[in-house]
Design a binder for these strands. Structure first.
Length: 193
DNA sequence: CAAGAGATCATCT
DNA sequence: GATGATCTCTTGA
């Protein structure tokens, strides 16, 4: 069943953990794609220097200051998109970055979009999964409780979780070492180990 | 297999 | 004018 807004209003760290083992669903004219979420990162509020919202309320970060359950999609390095889901109450400006998926449905479509065959390389990273799921800026600010992109709970038991520091945030001072990256232990579709 | 560089642009200073 | 919540390709052992 589709996850509702109240789920996204919980504390960000809890959501980042609980999203593991859930399923990201993307409906598109070319077909449906589904991936099991195997890796996430938490960006916790305006004080977290790794969080884009820590540099204040701007046109780009505005969406994070709004209500939970909406997407924050941004363009990075002039090449890739990254998908986040906004969490917690208005003005707390937090989000969970979806970092890796295990391909489940629409695998041929993902291969075509990624121009690659290897399953392990289809969605094992934030930029890769956006390419495989055709996620770009047109989906920024979309409602994940009512739309073409949402998360499904298929009733699987909570997986074993491994927590590590976040990736690519060396600039974040004392915040860079927080163990706020979560992965399913032993899963082969995560971005790194 | 590991390390390094380049891609390429929206966003903020 | 600098830089980034990344990825792929090339080089060399």
């Amino acid at each position: 069943m589709k996850i509702s807004r109240t789920f996204y209003e919980q504390p960000t760290l809890a959501i980042a953990r609980e999203l593991l083992g859930k399923y990201l669903v993307r409906k598109h004219p070319d077909g449906k794609t589904v991936g099991r979420i195997v890796e996430t990162e938490a960006y916790v509020g305006p004080k977290d220097l790794a969080c884009h919202a820590s540099r204040g309320r701007t046109a780009r970060t505005e969406i994070m200051f709004g209500p939970a359950g909406f997407t924050y999609v941004y363009f990075i390095y002039g090449v890739y998109y990254c998908l986040n889901i906004v969490t917690e109450e208005v003005d707390h400006a937090s989000a969970v970055l979806i970092r890796a998926l295990e391909p489940v449905e629409g695998i041929e479509l993902m291969k075509k979009r990624r121009r690659i065959e290897e399953l392990r390389n289809l969605a094992s990273g934030p930029g890769k999964l956006c390419q495989a799921f055709a996620i770009d800026k047109s989906l920024n600010g979309a409602d994940v409780c009512a739309g073409v992109l949402y998360v499904e709970d298929r009733g699987e038991p909570a997986p074993k979780i491994l927590a590590t520091p976040r990736i690519g945030v060396d600039y974040a001072g004392k915040w860079k070492d927080k163990p706020w990256r979560f992965l399913i232990r032993g899963n082969e579709y995560v971005s790194k180990t």
